[in-house]
Design a protein around this nucleic acid. Structure first.
Lengths: 334, 334
DNA sequence: TTGAAAGCGCTACCAT
DNA sequence: ATGGTAGCGCTTTCAA
């Protein structure tokens, strides 16, 4: 910057003001400075700026994978979310610090906060980290979490009504005459636990004869496939599956198909999320849609309001049942 | 830091040394300082440190989407790569700045370099940005690109031998007796263009009667689906498809199946990448595997060597044909 | 409207 | 082995 100042024949403070678009600088001077800066490819050093201003102009996006057994991000859901977040955050002129947190997960959140690398934190998915989030919520404000809304939680979440969504899905299957409906998912994860609750609520209000059954499975494609195959080989008696996520649903379909059973004729399957793959699976997946684009907008909006000291409430969006073929609804229309 | 210094009864320079693990500080003093720092939740401010050191301890990972028509990252390939990169970069104690670049793509690279937000840059996929990369390669060294190796390029790439991989796939189909093989992909993207070249090379060496046909399609699932359906409805005569990516392959399978044709009996399909979905598609996809974990390791390794001033050569890894069912090889074994 | 100077928090050099 | 001090590049207050 001092170089630019010298070239323009002014003091650095004037350059700083000019480049910041301050109205204090005389127009002709400002234009001259801007021109010189551009022609020399000069960019204000964000590190120095951050140090002076006390803020980094960037936000951390964290993906905790406490519930995952395998390394890579296996769920496209998180990734699509990441893409939308990147757009929104970039649009506000902020940088995006990506952080993947794997077990063993000690002090990851307090460390991240303490490092002051970013002005705010978005956590995608509670994973198994509800307690860690709860622990810092009262002391560190610019924090927003995508996930399930848990009773008495003190951190701010954005998500869809998981109970309602799962209930929608389960009621739909009941309405199609299915009575032996299995739930497939890892209820250690809050969002999935809530979906399981919606599933049980629907069955509690179902006609007599409807059976509940929860099969715990990890959230990766392979492990869900194995869980489903095990259930079948053990002679599990069921005519429908409510899957905790689309990834699990697609794996379940594959496992069911592999044993010679047909989806949806023999077993109806409903997923959750409506990831891109859902429409392209075979058969196309009936699922509960979460609007990620809107979700990301909420997350970023709330975070920026919190970064300015505002207190914000959690947002619970309405889920939407997307009916395709895996539930067998089209068979009934005949 | 000055607080910690006061509490420990020493000067800040001693605290700095102690926290950096300098052997100059007496053991007892160092331990005392570390203890105080920990108990107060003190963390060295990375912004100030960066300013002083002249390096940010972070690397930018950029995903240029010049070839994409839709906003979100539609290809799981990039995402899996991102996950591995995050692991490797974190392991070296560096931060990961994520940058998504959408059209119109002006000066994105020089801007990123000029901002000095990171000490090095990894670009995932050349997209349509070969020229932009070429333009800075001689002037900015800590830059590594995942993508296809182009003749006379001056930037450093990591990738698989795309020509060889596609040739592997095409030869395999020829070996199974297929003669009317279509290529499906966007040849504007260097990697895909190389794969197309491998495909044509294989056909040039094929028995008489083998036909070439290139169908240009965008890289997203929906558009590939449409392209395939259009080809079929126009009465395109073919018995096999070499797809530019797995995402395209899976969409092609869906489009083929939707018209009543069978994969692989009527049309054999081979993909490229071996994304997680490939093994789980219906039928499971025969594809050319790129080892992403190894690829990510190479990228990070080369980048860090370049950040230390070393000149590095591009890496071209060997692709591997993974034979599953979509090519129909299992039908021949009978 | 511009200049001068202080200081963000840290590290490294030069003393001692 | 430790302390003092300068300075990384910027913004902002105060003075002119």
């Amino acid at each position: 910057m001092s170089d630019i100042a010298r070239l323009a024949g002014v003091h650095t403070s004037t350059v700083s003001r000019a480049l910041a678009g301050s109205p204090l600088v005389e127009k002709s001077v400002r234009e001259k400075i801007v021109k010189i800066a551009r022609s020399h490819g000069y960019k204000v050093n964000p590190t120095a700026r951050s140090l002076r201003l006390g803020r980094t102009q960037s936000v951390s996006v964290v993906i905790p994978l406490g519930h995952e057994v395998t390394q890579p991000l296996s769920d496209p859901f998180f990734v699509q979310m990441l893409g939308y977040l990147a757009d929104d955050i970039t649009q506000r002129g902020y940088g995006l610090f990506l952080q993947k947190v794997l077990p063993p997960m000690q002090d990851w959140l307090t460390d991240l906060i303490g490092s002051k690398r970013s002005d705010g934190i978005i956590v995608i998915g509670q994973s198994t980290e509800h307690k860690a989030l709860e622990a810092v919520a009262n002391q560190y404000k610019p924090l927003v979490v995508w996930g399930g809304q848990i009773d008495h939680q003190s951190y701010c979440t954005v998500g869809t009504d998981n109970i309602g969504g799962a209930r929608l899905a389960t009621d739909h299957l009941l309405g199609l005459g299915r009575r032996k409906i299995v739930f497939l998912g890892d209820t250690k994860v809050p969002e999935i636990r809530l979906r399981y609750r919606g599933y049980t609520q629907a069955l509690d209000h179902a006609p007599k004869g409807a059976k509940k059954r929860n099969i715990r499975t990890h959230m990766t494609a392979d492990l869900a496939f194995d869980a489903m195959r095990k259930l079948i080989s053990e002679g599990g008696d069921f005519d429908a599956v409510v899957a905790g996520t689309d990834v699990i649903a697609v794996s379940a379909i594959r496992a069911i198909t592999a044993t010679g059973l047909k989806v949806p004729e023999d077993v109806a399957v409903v997923g959750y999320d409506d990831i891109g793959l859902a429409a392209h699976s075979n058969p196309p997946l009936t699922t509960v849609r979460q609007d990620l684009e809107k979700g990301a907008k909420h997350l970023v909006d709330l975070l920026f309001r919190r970064m300015e000291g505002e207190e914000t409430e959690s947002v619970n969006m309405a889920p939407e049942l997307i009916i395709r073929e895996s539930c067998g609804a089209h068979l009934h229309r005949r």
